[in-house]
Design a protein around this nucleic acid. Structure first.
Lengths: 345, 345
DNA sequence: AATTAGCACTCACCTTGGCAGAGTGCTAAC
DNA sequence: GTTAGCACTCTGCCAAGGTGAGTGCTAATT
């Protein structure tokens, strides 16, 4: 069977109407709402074809049709009219986001809030993977007996502090001497490259302080290692919006969804992928079957050309793809610009 | 009408059965499950009295009775058998919490998680009010042009960093000189007392640096001012547990509840109060009418005798008060001890 | 050959009525 | 003062029937 123009129009109509109403759409509805110039009976025949081709399906005999995942995919790839973001939304983003960037984390969190407010969907914003992140400065401050505060500044400007055990026989001052060597020589080294990098030189040079260096290295590694799932590396916004979607009127679904929301690792999987640029994942295309009724639009944002993190929106497969894509694209752009400017400042 | 012993027994039976089953309890049920030595008919008469007295109510004619807020109150105040926490729970707390206290914030978050796991309710843990908190050390680290990182260590051991604008004509070093003066002379001053305190002396002494001092003061004040609602000063745990309660099988209720959960200020109201010690707030006793079907048990924990913060559990009015109270009490004790020990270390 | 009108059929959804079960309140007996 | 018995009430459940939206098929129309 061939996908002619009329079939496309009908599929598009079905998807759009279903996105708007969340009700299975029948042949009469289409002929009424969309002016295709053919009778419901013709549409019925075409719909029957579309169903055979796998683009739409019937929840039960004698009800309207709803798009299948394949149908959404076809819609997104070929039928959807890409829309530009409304000016009012753009302004809102510009105004609100730039006033809120005293710290990178805040900017990310706010980005998420904006996305979810504008789309009425759930937003996900992922911080840079720390392993990938580049350490710029390192400081140690005295804390309690046997402990010190390690302050790390990454290249993207984020500041973090951790309390580390330094043992009784090392002083904060010693650590800071070391940190200064680091700051002067090694600004801009990936954490994971530290051991094999310049630090090896220092290591050899200052064999007296070997123990202390070892300690610094291991604290850094454990601080930036992957198993720090607890840290809020991912920002979630507008989770409540999901409750407004008719597909989540079932309390059990809400429960499983929200328990996933509390598992950062699962969320990261959802929007993190190897491909560059923006990606639309529809329904069963998601790796986790919990999200088989959800779609995700995700994209990576950049700072100074280097990959930094991802943002995404999550919603039911029946979501307004054009709008969601528009905002993710704009936000990627906006965040990239924001963080890049910030860097220069 | 007088509250004799039999009425008390019956009320207690009603409350306990309703807590266990969430179903209105009838006279037959009581006579079956509880051995009161009287017939259902007698119980019926007594229940009629109890209803007139306001302790129980009927959802609809010819159904069993459920406790009213007043009934719960009477139960909590006079009837409830205070239980000790099970040993297994106590051990769990001891084992898990002490392994997780590299930072105060983590300890608090973990406390909340434990409370909600053990009670199957929602937990709230409030950090110390920053205005009340006592500043111990202050450091400035270089950041970008015109900005510095201000690291503050409070007496309770919590460490925080903020990025502050220092303008072009002040250097981080100047700030640190000042901070050192502070660190040597003023460790342990309330933030809100700073201006009127020792700093005034320095202020006079070092009139040359007046501008810089002014700046430090104002950043400190804005950092610790009350309007920092965004900061996660409150930890919420086990929100999903609420979904398992039959009283929240209504999606609308879930929605309003969860939207409240996102408003930190409302949550703070819920567990923060002037009175010392542990407080049980039942149903309509809550100031916010959204929580008219919820009860809150809250208590303040202390560090070295000074008030520090509150913890609480939130659940439906039909909650296991004895257990919830037991764990809040134990947690208050445990947290106080933990943070106090930490201090000495 | 494609399109349309007409018709029978299906299925979800709503309403209605009947029935069982649990509970109460009242009265009379113990 | 307590209990047994009985009439009454209300909820929850199930089945039956009606309605409306929708489909699939066939025959007529263009």
């Amino acid at each position: 069977m061939k996908m002619d123009e009329r079939k496309q129009k009908i599929l598009k109509a079905i998807v759009q109407d279903y996105i708007a109403t969340a009700e299975p759409v029948g042949s009469r509805t289409i002929s009424r709402k969309f002016d295709l110039g053919v009778s419901p009976a013709t549409i019925r025949n075409e719909m029957s074809d579309l169903e055979e081709m796998g683009f739409i399906e019937q929840p039960h005999t004698s009800s309207g049709r709803i798009p299948s995942d394949i149908g959404y995919r076809y819609y997104v790839d070929y039928l959807m009219a890409p829309i530009a973001l409304q000016k009012v939304d753009k302004n809102r983003i510009k105004d609100q986001i730039s006033s809120k960037i005293s710290e990178v984390e805040e900017a990310l969190e706010y980005t998420g809030k904006l996305i979810s407010q504008i789309t009425n969907l759930t937003s996900l914003v992922l911080c840079p993977r720390t392993k990938e992140s580049v350490l710029q400065k390192l400081y140690f401050l005295p804390y309690q007996q046997g402990k010190a505060i390690m302050v790390t500044i990454k290249e993207n400007g984020s500041v973090e502090n951790n309390i580390v055990d330094i043992g009784e026989d090392t002083t904060t001052e010693e650590l800071q001497v070391l940190a200064n060597i680091f700051n002067e020589n090694m600004g801009g080294t990936r954490v994971r490259d530290l051991k094999s990098g310049l630090l090896r030189e220092i290591y050899n040079e200052l064999s007296r302080k070997r123990k202390v260096i070892d300690f610094v290295l291991s604290s850094l590694e454990s601080t930036f290692s992957d198993n720090r799932e607890e840290s809020p590396e991912i920002y979630l916004g507008g989770t409540l919006n999901m409750l407004n979607q008719p597909e989540f009127h079932d309390l059990d679904k809400v429960k499983t969804l929200f328990s996933i929301f509390e598992e950062n690792s699962k969320l990261k999987e959802l929007i993190h992928h190897d491909k560059e640029g923006r990606i639309v994942t529809i329904g069963s295309e998601n790796s986790n079957k919990v999200f088989k009724d959800c779609s995700v639009i995700s994209a990576t944002y950049h700072v100074n050309g280097k990959e930094i993190g991802s943002i995404g929106v999550l919603g039911p497969t029946r979501m307004d793809y054009s709008k969601a894509i528009a905002i993710v694209d704009y936000m990627t752009f906006s965040l990239t610009e924001l963080l890049t400017n910030r860097q220069k400042k």
